[in-house]
Every structure is written in structure tokens, then in C-alpha cells.
Amino acid sequence: MSNALLDYEGPLRTRMGACFPGERAVFRGHDLHADLKDMDWIALYAFGITGRRFSPQQTALLHALWTYTSYPDPRLWNNRVAALAGSARSTGALGVAAAIAVSEASIYGWQPEFAAADFLVRAHQRMLAGEALQAILEQELQLHKRILGYGRPVATLQVDERIPAILARMEHEHIAQGPYLQLAFEIEKGLARMGRQLPINYGGVVVAIPLDMGFSPRECYLFLLPSFMAGMPPCYLEASQRPEGATFPLRCSQLRYEGPAWRLWQQE
């Protein structure tokens, strides 16, 4: 048995919390039903991730980051999973859980957002050390071919409709743009100077704002995981109200097939 397993054998030691049935529940050292009983759920969620408390204005902005990307459109890749689960008469828990799981797709979803947060932190540190942003962008593109958080497959040259809404909410809450959000917009300009017309998308903004609140890239990722969820139950419900299998039905004759011609199965 490894030394690590021996070191951790026995009662679980945790700083996060514990449940004492019939007595109390402890959440990061605080009594959940006494000390934290009036805490907003998003504030509690962020507190669980970061161990820090946020002002009412910051909490309202964190709420908005989720609200403004809650699209109940079953054509979206993750919502489609929830809808198909309803169509197949699966349970809501399985449908929503699967939809959240595919939300971290490697092309669009939380994997790119995590990478965008990581790049913003690295770029910011390098600029503080005296490097020019343009040189940083050129090196990043040479190494990774792209910078995540810029461009949008469905509307590449258009402004992401969520960005003006979240900037207006920042202004309403009297929260100034911090260094990471300012850097995110400077990167957009830097890419344009290189001939790459890739407007910043919500992924670049949605991580820059928490970064400016002191989140780490990993904490940004954990905070954003459920942020699409509000749009999923409507898709599941509507599909479950249709006849079974009647969500996105497609006849084979509607497919344009260019593979091998029809052939008989021969058993050897």
C-alpha cells in the first residue's frame, strides 16, 4: 500500500464541511442553517468554490453571467441531449445531467472557457513582466493555432448578443471593468491588427469577469459548470409532452449519403 493511502487511512479529514444528522450542517466552517441561512444560493455556490464572500453587486453580476446564457433552444448541442432524453422518456435527472456533461465540449463549451481563462492569466502575467501583447499573441497562435474566447461558429463576425447585456449589467451594478476584462478586449483588437477578424465571444468575457473578482481559472470553470442549466428543463419538458420519439425525427431518405453502395450481408 502506498504511503499516501496509509496517510489518509481512517476518518476523513476535511475543511469543507460535514453533516451531523439531527444536529447541524457545517459549510466551510460555518453553520449552514445559522451563519449562512440568509446567503443567496449563487453566493453560497461561489463561497463553496472560493472560500470567499462577494458583495451584493458582485453576486448580482455572477447571477447575470448565468442568466444571460440560459437559452431554452433544443437545437443547441447540450439542450438537444436534454430534449432527446425527454423524447426517449428518460428521467429528468439523467437528461439534465447528460446535458451538463456535454456542456464542456472541446470545441464550444467549458473546456474552451477554461483555456481562455488560463491564457488571460498567462498573458496578464507576461505583460506585467514587460512583454508586448502583440508578441504574446503571435507566439500563442504559433503554438496553438487559435486563441479561445474569440470568434463564434454560428455568427463569427457579429457581436455576441450576451456581451452588451452583461456590460450594461456591470454599469448598473457600478462595477468597473477590471484588468482581465480590459485585457480580453485588447486581445480582440490585437487579433484584428493581425488580420484575424475574430470578435470576442461570451467565453472570453464570462471568464474575465470572475478572474477580476479573484477567481482562479479552475474556480471559473467550476463556477460556470451549471450556467447553461436553466435552459435545459424547458427543452426536456417540451419533448416529453410530444409523442415518444417525435423530437428531431429524421427519415433515412432525407439523408444525403455518399458512402458505399447498397450491398447484401454475406455470412462467411
Rank of each mutant, 00 (worst) to 15 (best):
A97M: 09
A97L: 07
A97S: 15
A97I: 03
A97C: 06
A97T: 14
A97H: 01
A98R: 05
A98I: 05
A98C: 09
A98N: 08
A99F: 00
A99E: 06
A99P: 02
A99I: 03
I100R: 05
I100G: 01
I100T: 13
I100H: 05
I100L: 14
I100Q: 11
A101M: 13
A101D: 11
A101Y: 10
A101C: 13
V102S: 11
V102G: 12
V102Q: 08
V102F: 00
V102I: 15
S103M: 12
S103C: 09
S103R: 04
S103Y: 04
S103P: 05
S103T: 13
E104V: 00
E104L: 02
E104F: 01
E104A: 09
E104G: 12
A105I: 07
A105E: 08
A105N: 14
A105H: 11
S106C: 07
S106N: 13
S106I: 12
S106A: 07
I107Q: 12
I107V: 15
I107W: 01
I107Y: 03
I107R: 14
Y108S: 14
Y108T: 12
Y108A: 15
Y108H: 13
Y108D: 13
G109C: 07
G109S: 04
G109M: 05
G109A: 02
G109H: 08
G109V: 09
W110P: 02
W110T: 01
W110M: 04
W110E: 07
Q111V: 14
Q111A: 13
P112C: 00
P112K: 03
P112Q: 01
P112F: 06
P112E: 05
P112Y: 00
E113Q: 12
E113L: 00
E113G: 02
F114W: 13
F114I: 02
F114Y: 14
F114M: 03
F114Q: 11
F114A: 12
A115H: 05
A115Q: 08
A115K: 07
A116I: 00
A116C: 14
A116Y: 03
A116D: 02
A117T: 01
A117M: 02
A117F: 07
D118L: 09
D118I: 03
D118E: 15
F119K: 11
F119T: 08
F119Q: 06
F119N: 02
L120T: 05
L120I: 06
L120G: 03
V121C: 08
V121L: 08
V121T: 12
V121N: 04
V121R: 07
V121D: 04
R122L: 09
R122P: 06
R122N: 09
R122H: 09
A123M: 10
A123S: 15
A123G: 10
A123D: 07
H124E: 13
H124T: 11
H124F: 03
H124G: 12
H124C: 04
H124I: 06
H124M: 10
H124Q: 13
Q125E: 14
Q125P: 04
R126S: 15
R126K: 15
R126Y: 00
R126N: 08
R126H: 10
M127G: 11
M127A: 08
M127K: 12
L128M: 13
L128T: 11
A129P: 03
A129Q: 14
